[in-house]
Design a protein around this nucleic acid. Structure first.
Lengths: 225, 225
DNA sequence: CATAATTGATAGTATTACTATTTAATTTGT
DNA sequence: ACAAATTAAATAGTAATACTATCAATTATG
């Protein structure tokens, strides 16, 4: 099987972590560690110890741990967009394309053999718990100018386009999709930690099925009526 | 005019900040400072300097700055619930109640003369930019056991009840409302910082009007069809 | 082969988030 | 009223965090 590499925006790193053994280890292990410790509990010092390197070496790849998080989340959005491009190939019906996209957004994430160096299951848990922290900062405007959020914006725009193909009159295509993308994560977090805020049930095995149903109901009903 | 005081859950503080001059100053000034510096840039040391007190004194009221944020956000949700109770008084039609609730959620927040000690405009900006950080932590389950999120859950449940009065068959009442409550803030943040993720425009004065239209369209369409 | 550039290691610093202890003020009982 | 008890506030710490500056080793290039 061919091994792929997502093209990441230059500004996401100081030195491309895909280029060196150490760089790949930094990304691989930080995914595991942020998943285990949470973003606040994670430090470059702990990571350095785990990969038998030093803080200063890690700082050569990423300006700080926030940038490393942004890199990981950007990778995730790029990956989703690639999966949606792949999944909607040769399909012309916009309703079907929208359905496929929402299916991919809400489906359970498994390790993708195309990207053997990334633990997608751990990354997905990070996305659910930490992704909002990439932009909920005082430097959001500068970060945005550097293009750090291009992945999320691009994905949002792509799916919003499907909506506008279905109903060009609909006024809130981008708002609805950014809402749906966030809701897809949020509801899983709530299901696990604050269950009274959802109607999902983590103990049942149709969790991701319900999530998809919810998103599809919400999006299609909202644009149609 | 009568001055009110919202009843805050005991676990939100070590010593009730409403009881003393210092306590009230801590809450008042920290609202201003978190609004200015962001939650990450805010420290108890800076706050102590500003109110001419000491770090240790502040730690007598709040275990740490995270708890102080949780307190502020809980106050906000309690305030909203009070406004919705007030606004839906004597109204029996569930559709009208839902409409009123979503109106209150999305309306521009002004200083409330009933609570002269709180700067609601600054607090609203904090809610938009920081509220997710109250639960996106590794201690969310312990915090939840202590009842720190009761305000948000209670509000969500109240509005979800309106939905179930309209359509008892609807499967995702809680999910839809928690999604709408978050979307109402998120879209305003996006409008200001990542405008390609919304269809709102901060330069126009109908921003909050659009936000309400969006929430009402989304919620009513989703539950009706 | 020499020089430059890159990579990694060592050792620091300012700040943060707290805590333990001491001092001062206030309340309470007699 | 006044000492004892209680509570509040100030002082002075500490361990950990988030970096940074410098130095040494390795690799690449003319």
């Amino acid at each position: 099987m061919a091994t792929l590499q997502l093209l990441m925006s230059e500004n996401l790193f100081l030195r491309d972590p895909q280029d060196t053994e150490l760089g790949r280890k930094i990304v691989q292990e930080s995914i595991k560690m942020i998943d285990e410790l949470g973003f606040e509990g994670f430090t470059f010092k702990k990571l350095a110890m785990r990969i038998d390197s030093t803080e200063a070496s890690i700082y050569r790849y990423f300006e700080n741990k926030h940038r490393l998080l942004v890199y990981m989340i950007a990778w995730y959005w790029n990956w989703l967009e690639y999966k949606i491009d792949f999944g909607t190939q040769n399909i012309t019906d916009p309703e079907r394309k929208l359905e496929i996209a929402l299916g991919i957004v809400s489906e359970k994430k498994m390790t993708d053999p195309f990207f053997p160096q990334i633990d997608e299951e751990a990354l997905y848990r990070i996305v659910i718990a930490e992704s909002d922290k990439t932009y909920l900062t005082k430097q959001v405007d500068e970060d945005n100018k550097e293009g750090l959020f291009r992945g999320f914006k691009s994905l949002c725009h792509k799916i919003a386009t499907f909506i506008l193909e279905i109903n060009p009159e609909f006024e809130f295509a981008h708002s609805l999709i950014s809402t749906a993308l966030q809701a897809g994560h949020q509801q899983l977090f709530y299901a696990q930690h604050l269950p009274s805020l959802t109607d999902f049930d983590t103990t049942k095995d149709d969790l991701h099925q319900k999530n998809m149903e919810f998103l599809i109901t919400m999006v299609f009903n909202t644009i149609k009526c």
